[in-house]
Amino acid sequence: MITVNINGKDYSAEKDETVLAVAKRNFIYIPTFCHNEAVADYGSCRICMVEIWTKKGKNKLVTACLFPVEDGLKVETNNERVLFIRKNIAELLLAKCPASAEVAEIAAQLGVYETKYRIEKDGNKCILCALCTRVCDEVVGRKAISLVNRGINREVAIPFYDNAAACIACGSCVYICPTNAITMTDKDGIRTITMPNCEMKFALRKCNSCGREWIPEKQVKYFLSSAPGLTIEEFDLCQSCRK
């Protein structure tokens, strides 16, 4: 057990915990976009910047989601220097994602309502946090999408913008997206996943009892191939009808 001081109060913490984890446990609010407990932290959105002082006298701004706590660490999450840099990050994100309500909300919390930077692309919602690619890799294990190109052209995409072979239409990327840049609709037996640069369509399987289209065929196929004991009959009924 070690002791960390956040905003003037001492908290106990485990070694190798991140500043964000300790703060969250103690109900100290730090805004985040690219953090999600389901996947490893990545530090791409930068909105969780905090100022730290180590015992050895090092003082700097770090991302709370990546910085591991150490004994005697002093953290300030809301001082002038932190807010100055966080507001600037909010402005940059606003310029990147003018269409995102979530970005606007966190910016508004910081008192930022407009940006001095040039709006990159009207209608854009993606902040390039890579949560979608990380969940596809770390949780689903399919690695169907990745970040492609670089610099101002960087974007999330499936290979060649048209090859959805690895995707099982599970929708994890949709649920995890912090800015709703990826959307999904189930209609007329087709699941449509829409990314900023492509649209993917997948057939859905009907429940034999209630007739609800409840699972993508590709996902069933994936389950069958990865779990040898499973049989196709297991997917005859949806979750609700199975009881």
Binding site: T133, R142, K143, V148, N149, P159
Partner: peptide
């Protein structure tokens, strides 16, 4: 390895 990774590197 995943095709998405190869495509990512090839476009970078």
């Amino acid at each position: 390895i995943a095709l998405s990774r190869v495509f990512s590197v090839a476009t970078f």
